[in-house]
């Protein structure tokens, strides 16, 4: 079969009941939702900031790891000199109390960890989830039962507790951001896998898939050519909401002091050292807290928008027993 096979052409896919609306229609619906669009703009800005971190640092003329003893008042225990945590022409967002490191540069570099770990962990989750879901949906009964029960257990586990415990037994030499991606990725694929399995079971019984099998396509080819394109919409919907949850998890682990190790700047870690300064220097608390808030909220709004754009009924759908899943964010 070639790419021009009429059974796999976009029109044929769109005609099936489980298929998603066309890309143009989705884009139009998404554009109509102002909140989602605002979220997308914020995300683009944050991504640009992360990518251009060295450039922005050069523009301000500061280094993320340089100490500035002259910017803090050692007589007062290291409180930054000047109002609002030492905001001024030299240090655009002030300095870190105690050390005097420049906050703007550290926040900008922190965006790399936050977005990088959040997106990479989501990628790992989605890849494992699609693999396991497809295998469960297409495999024999034994394989399906085995994989489905494993998925159930993965979904029930409090992932934060497991992530913390796993981070404890890995040797200190292992690069921390990679470790975070792996731990979050390996613990969080259950939701994607469940969705993919359910979709696969529905799609498997449709005429166009049956036709492809009759035409001599093997299992693997059916999965790749016929099923994956139709899985894109439900997976994208779910993925859009996985990203903010992963970003929050990374911030949480770094906040607890078991994520990214200093001196690598990370928002969660800055926030945890800020809690000891929250009365003397509120600016130091508000900056990382505000950034984590804005980032997570922007991704959530966009995800919510994508969900409604792909399936307008989803917004009013009743959350049933299947949605009783606890995300370990407490």
């Amino acid at each position: 079969m070639t790419a021009t096979d009429p059974l796999t052409a976009p029109g044929a896919v769109a005609a099936t009941p489980a298929a998603a609306p066309g890309a143009r229609q989705v884009w139009r619906r998404l554009r109509a939702r102002r909140a989602a669009l605002a979220g997308a703009c914020v995300i683009v800005l944050l991504a640009l900031m992360a990518l251009a971190a060295p450039l922005l640092a050069a523009l301000e003329g500061q280094d993320p790891d340089a100490y500035h003893a002259d910017a803090v008042d050692s007589a007062l225990g290291g409180v930054p000199i000047g109002s609002f945590g030492g905001i001024g022409a030299d240090h655009w967002l002030g300095v870190e109390p105690g050390t005097g490191r420049d906050l703007f540069v550290r926040l900008v570099y922190g965006a790399r960890i936050s977005l990088g770990v959040g997106l990479a962990a989501t990628a790992v989750q989605v890849i494992i989830g699609i693999g396991v879901g497809l295998a469960a949906g297409l495999g024999n009964r034994l394989l399906d039962t085995l994989l489905s029960r494993t998925t159930d257990v993965m979904l029930a586990l409090p992932s934060l507790v497991f992530a913390i415990a796993l981070l404890a037994i890995v040797p200190a030499g292992f690069p921390r951001p990679v470790l975070l991606v792996l731990v979050l990725g390996l613990l969080g694929w259950g939701g994607t896998s469940r969705i993919v399995r359910a979709q696969t079971l529905t799609l498997k019984s449709l005429d166009y898939v049956a036709a492809a099998r009759l035409g001599g396509s093997g299992r693997w080819r059916v999965a790749r050519r016929e099923l994956l394109p139709s899985l894109a919409a439900p997976v994208a919907t779910y993925t859009a909401l996985l990203v903010p949850s992963n970003i929050a998890s990374e911030a949480g682990l770094s906040f607890l002091g078991i994520g990214v190790k200093p001196p690598t700047p990370s928002w969660g870690q800055m926030l945890s050292s800020a809690t000891t300064w929250y009365q003397a220097d509120p600016t130091y608390v508000l900056l990382p807290a505000g950034l984590i808030f804005v980032t997570v909220f922007a991704f959530t709004t966009l995800g919510d928008g994508i969900r409604t754009a792909l399936d307008p009924r989803a917004a009013s759908r009743v959350p049933g027993r299947a949605r009783r899943r606890k995300e370990a964010r407490a």
Binding site: L271, F293, D304
Partner: peptide
């Protein structure tokens, strides 16, 4: 409620602390 559910608990906690304690 969308905001409340999206924001990590340690951010809410710090902001509440800043407001009610500080």
């Amino acid at each position: 409620t969308l905001a409340g559910n999206a924001v990590p608990v340690f951010i809410t906690g710090i902001l509440l602390m800043l407001l009610f304690v500080s």
